[in-house]
Design a protein around this nucleic acid. Structure first.
Lengths: 97, 97
DNA sequence: ACATAATATTATAATATAGTATTTTTAAAA
DNA sequence: TTTTAAAAATACTATATTATAATATTATGT
């Protein structure tokens, strides 16, 4: 029993979340969407770093982005992830501002 | 805002879960405790591998073990983790057998 | 004390991830 | 169409993780 393959996908999902920056990004997007520049300011990280972390989240379908002109607005795209992050962070309100 | 330090602990917790073998172990322990030998049989992995993964889970307080003679019976020691794993795996019943 | 069973630890090679400077793409404005 | 801004992709070094063999520990039975 317990073939590990069954756990590979969910493990990949958790792994994508399991980084302070990425977790912070997802937490910040729980209630409001946000563009990369604002995130980079809030997170105090180079743009390339933020974009790379966003790419990891995008690859797992955790977030997706919509372009408006030069900006891309991201939001959380996975309900299960929303629930997990809320449980993990005790349902606190977090917003990029 | 959004100092990353706030997310370091929860990220560490997720990281410890974010591996197919470790996730499988935790899922298998959700309802019943189990000793290492049985786990190693179920998982079809060397004993050292299972013990190492258990050590990672123990270090994050995700599981703990009680020794009975030569055997150590493990159980999940963190309620938040139970909830997260149930949400992640759609609440399916998983047992080592 | 010695043998045996169950579990833990250590060491290490292979692989993966993290961070960031640099370059490229995309879109709007001059 | 050139310039500028925002975001993505690339390249590369440093660090971390994984898997597992080998060894050590812990507890029991003889």
């Amino acid at each position: 029993m317990n073939d590990a393959s069954k756990y590979e996908e969910p493990a990949r999902l958790l792994k994508a979340l399991a980084h302070p920056t990425r977790l912070c990004i997802v937490a910040g997007l729980l209630n409001d969407s946000c563009n990369v520049n604002k995130m980079k300011e809030c997170l105090n990280l180079p743009q390339s770093t933020v974009s790379q972390q966003l790419a990891i989240l995008r690859n797992q379908g955790i977030v997706d982005g919509v372009r408006h002109g030069t900006e891309v607005f991201y939001k959380v795209a996975n309900e299960k992830v929303k629930d997990i992050v809320k449980v993990l962070l005790d349902d606190e309100e977090i917003v990029f501002k």
